[in-house]
Amino acid sequence: MRRHGWSGAVPSTDAEAVDRILAVARAAIERSGADFTMAEIARELGVTRQTVYRYFPNADALIAATALVETGRFLDVLTAHLDRITDPADAVVEGIAYTLETLPRDRYLSLLLTPGRVGAYSADVTSDTALILGRSILERFAVDWERAGIDNAHLDELVEHMLRIVQSFVLDPGRPPRRAADLRAYLATWVAPALRNIQQR
């Protein structure tokens, strides 16, 4: 790591440098949303843009990384919300519904999963960043996936399917939009059977 800049307080490790960059990016997002440049981040850190680029190739990657770190709070809340649901199908239905309900209120989760923002920051809703987040969500469910007969390959496909469902509902919530019990009933009818089918194999 280069030993200059950083407003006179040079990080001792690359990990510390990343943490400091993410902290500045988080402050920028809290202040004015995701409309910032790498030059602004570098200026606030007291380094050159090239230094920031060493750790993040562009602003989109920095925004996605910051959002992924910050969604940990959402994962904790979701885990507590689902802690008594052990049936895979029921857990997936409630997980999707709760995520859709939380999305408009969670600044960082929306950066990762809202189409338009997803398009700008992570290629598409099935980007590596979104898939990592989705897998983190499933792994926090109070579900014994292996015992339910759902292996790693199926879990990866389930993450993709859940993200595609979230994207679809965000793009078009329906007319009128499905919410609360109506949303859960719809998901129970059209999503839950796929999980139960895998379990019966």
Rank of each mutant, 00 (worst) to 15 (best):
G46I: 02
E94Q: 12
V143M: 13
A28I: 03
D14K: 14
Q50G: 12
T51R: 14
D144M: 11
T102M: 12
R54D: 06
N58I: 01
A181C: 00
A67R: 04
L187Q: 02
V77F: 08
F74A: 08
A25M: 10
D124I: 04
H4P: 01
P11Q: 08
S127Q: 01
P176S: 09
R20K: 15
I96G: 09
R73Y: 12
R49C: 00
A64Q: 03
A28T: 01
G116I: 12
F141Y: 13
D35K: 10
R184H: 04
M1E: 03
V69I: 06
R73I: 11
P177T: 03
I132T: 14
H81T: 13
P177C: 09
E70M: 15
I21A: 04
Y55T: 02
N152L: 09
A142K: 10
P176V: 06
V159N: 00
E94H: 08
N197T: 11
T48Q: 03
S122L: 12
R26L: 13
V191G: 03
L68T: 02
E94R: 13
S32W: 05
P177M: 07
A89P: 05
E30W: 06
H161P: 00
L195M: 15
L113N: 08
L75P: 01
I165H: 04
A91S: 13
D83V: 06
D124H: 13
T71L: 08
R117P: 04
Y186N: 08
T189G: 02
T79F: 05
W6A: 02
R26T: 15
A153G: 03
I21T: 07
A25P: 00
I137W: 01
A142V: 13
V191F: 11
A123W: 02
A153E: 13
A39Q: 10
V143D: 10
Q50S: 11
E139S: 12
L112Q: 14
G72H: 01
T126K: 04
A34W: 09
V10A: 06
F74L: 14
L82K: 10
I96Q: 07
P104C: 08
R147Q: 14
S122G: 14
A153D: 13
R175L: 14
W145H: 09
A67V: 08
A34M: 07
E30G: 15
R26M: 11
L155F: 00
D76R: 11
T86L: 09
D151Y: 12
Y186S: 05
E70P: 05
L183G: 02
I165R: 04
V18M: 04
Q199W: 10
A192N: 01
D87C: 08
D14I: 15
L22H: 09
T189C: 05
F169E: 00
F141N: 11
L155D: 07
D172V: 06
P115F: 08
E157R: 14
A15E: 15
F56M: 00
R31D: 14
V166T: 11
T114F: 08
A188M: 02
V69T: 15
A67G: 04
L103Y: 09
R84C: 07
E70D: 03
F36Y: 13
A65F: 01
L45N: 06
E70H: 07
T37A: 04
R73G: 14
I132G: 03
V118K: 08
